[in-house]
Design a protein around this nucleic acid. Structure first.
Length: 486
RNA sequence: GGCGACGUGGCCGAGUGGUCAGGCAGAGGUCUGCAAAACCUCCUACGGCGGUUCGAUCCCGCCCGUCGCCUCCA
């Protein structure tokens, strides 16, 4: 595709992307509820949207990326009588709810940073926007979309004829399913809470026109997206599990409060599964990212570099489920290393020795762009990279460095680093400073001397001992090269 | 029960009405003192049964299986 197309959950089709304001994109993505460490499922979501943001910027859009931090308001079971998740975790850890929020917010960014996920431009906290949420509830009451009963305010779903459109639900049929328990003071079972009255035991509560209470689950995203992106903006994203009811409710609230369309494009990433089961905090089968990075989990045999996780996720499409296994991760690791070695070979090729023939960079560029233009198909873009970079490396290895090697290298920085975030990491991490390198060179010299004297016992011993230390020697026609591995 | 999605070679995973994904693993070969790397070649799959079609993995129907949402969740 020659222009960006995005699969829009609203229409169930890929649509040509046209921003509201030429050259600018406002995007909101549902962020985490900070009462536990982020896990692989969060990684899938935020790595996916990270590439979306990076690619939009690569296309020269000015992007404002807003992703909330939910530090209040989500409940453990039934919306009407549950316990705040943060409060519950606070009780377990014997901390203030806000300590829980801070702790897990830090952990969230720590792990996302490790994955190379660029930070949002704005990370608004729900508790920092209580006033905005109250204002929104007021507007909904004024507009006749909500009603108050004894300190609780509910959204009147029957007042919104589009309710159910995003998730493809028919409200009338929903009722017959009747797994929804009707709270005594709701007019209709599918009405959802905008503001809840807090009982005495509730710690996180605020004064409001309806008495002491706390916001319902969905208002925060409507209030904060409106505040930072406007009443009508371009893209709203999140996990598929939030499609209903969360996003449906957001749409109903925002449209009801402003009498305007809300987000134009709705993007939903699919789930990560573990042995075929959805990985989720509440299911207790989630492996946290920190556990991946440290290897400290009974299902893991070793630690996994964050970049491997990132590459693993980008090898599948964001709208497909990703089934996790260590075998798959291990395959991803080898693939990533091989891709990065190609990138490095190209990046380090000496332009001084370039030949007369140019590589068709425009063709590579347009081919990669066409893959990402097709609803961010990172899996195909990566396949193109493998094929094309292999061809370039082949030329370099056979001494035919393309004349435009510098442009190729610049482009790879833009794309492999800038868009995919998969640039090879610095090798110095092991401490390969100048002295170390000189020592390795010295050993290589001695080893090659031994080889010339056909003393292979000694030369192989040097090679083996170095390999034990993670230093790999490779004999080529131009001499011996070495590589330091973790 | 309602709504939705998926089922691709040893593994992961794109995609398409008629050549080819790609990666990992594996096999053979070139090169090399050996090894590694690199390069070449091979492994040619689309849950089952029908239908549409000159032709279907891709379209339609049914069946089987798996999963998601309908409750907080990325």
């Amino acid at each position: 595709m020659d222009t960006l197309h995005i699969y829009n959950t609203l229409s169930r089709e890929k649509e040509k992307f046209e921003p509201i304001k030429e050259g600018f994109v406002g995007i909101y993505v549902c962020g985490p509820t900070v009462y536990g460490d982020p896990h692989l499922g969060h990684a899938k979501s935020y790595v996916s949207f990270d590439v979306v943001i990076r690619y939009l910027r690569y296309l020269d859009y000015r992007v404002r990326y807003v992703q909330n931090i939910t530090d209040v308001g989500h409940l453990t079971d039934d919306a009407d009588q549950g316990e705040d998740k943060l409060e519950k975790q606070a009780a377990i850890e014997k901390l203030e709810p806000m300590e829980i929020a801070e702790k897990y917010t830090y952990n969230y960014f720590r792990d996302m940073d490790a994955l190379g996920v660029q930070r949002p431009d704005i990370s608004p906290r729900a508790t920092g926007h209580i006033i905005e949420q109250i204002e929104m509830v007021k507007k909904l009451l004024e507009n006749g979309h909500a009603y108050e009963t004894d300190g609780n305010v509910y959204f009147d779903v029957s007042s919104d004829e589009d309710y159910g459109k995003l998730s493809g639900r028919d409200i009338d049929e929903q009722e017959s399913g009747s797994r929804i328990e009707t709270a005594s003071d709701k007019r209709s079972p599918e009405d959802f809470a905008l503001w809840k009255k807090a009982d005495d035991g509730h710690i996180m509560k605020w004064p409001s026109p309806w008495g002491m209470g706390y916001p319902g689950w969905h208002v925060e995203c409507s209030a904060m997206s409106t505040k930072y992106l406007g009443e009508h903006f371009d893209i709203h994203g999140g996990g598929m599990d939030n499609q209903f009811p969360h996003h449906e409710c957001e749409i109903a609230q925002s449209k009801g409060a402003h009498n305007k369309p809300f987000a134009n494009y709705w993007m939903h990433n699919n789930m990560v599964t573990l042995e075929g089961q959805k990985m989720g905090k509440s299911l207790g089968n989630a492996i946290s990212l920190h556990q991946f990075f440290s290897g400290d989990h009974e299902l893991l045999s070793r630690a996994w570099d964050p970049q491997i996780i990132r590459f693993f996720l980008l090898q599948s499409h964001y709208r497909s489920t990703t089934d996790f296994s260590e075998d798959a991760l291990s395959g991803a690791e080898n693939g990533l290393r091989s891709l990065q070695e190609m990138v490095q070979t190209i990046d380090q090729a000496d332009p001084e020795n370039a030949g007369d023939t140019s590589y068709d960079l425009e063709s590579l560029r347009s081919s990669l762009e066409s893959k990402l233009n097709d609803d961010f198909n990172t899996a195909q873009a990566i396949a193109v990279l493998f094929e094309e970079l292999k061809a370039i490396r082949k030329d370099i290895n056979s001494g035919k460095i393309p004349a435009n090697i510098e442009e190729i290298s610049l482009f790879l920085h833009d794309f492999v680093d800038g868009v995919l975030g998969l640039w090879p990491q610095e090798e110095q991490s092991l401490g390969a400073d100048d002295k170390t390198e000189q020592l390795i060179e010295l050993l290589i010299d001695f080893r090659n001397k031994a080889r010339h004297e056909k003393n292979f016992e000694l030369s192989d011993a040097i090679r083996d001992r170095l390999e034990e230390m993670g230093i790999k020697l490779m004999d080529g026609p131009e001499g011996t090269d070495f590589k330091i591995e973790n």
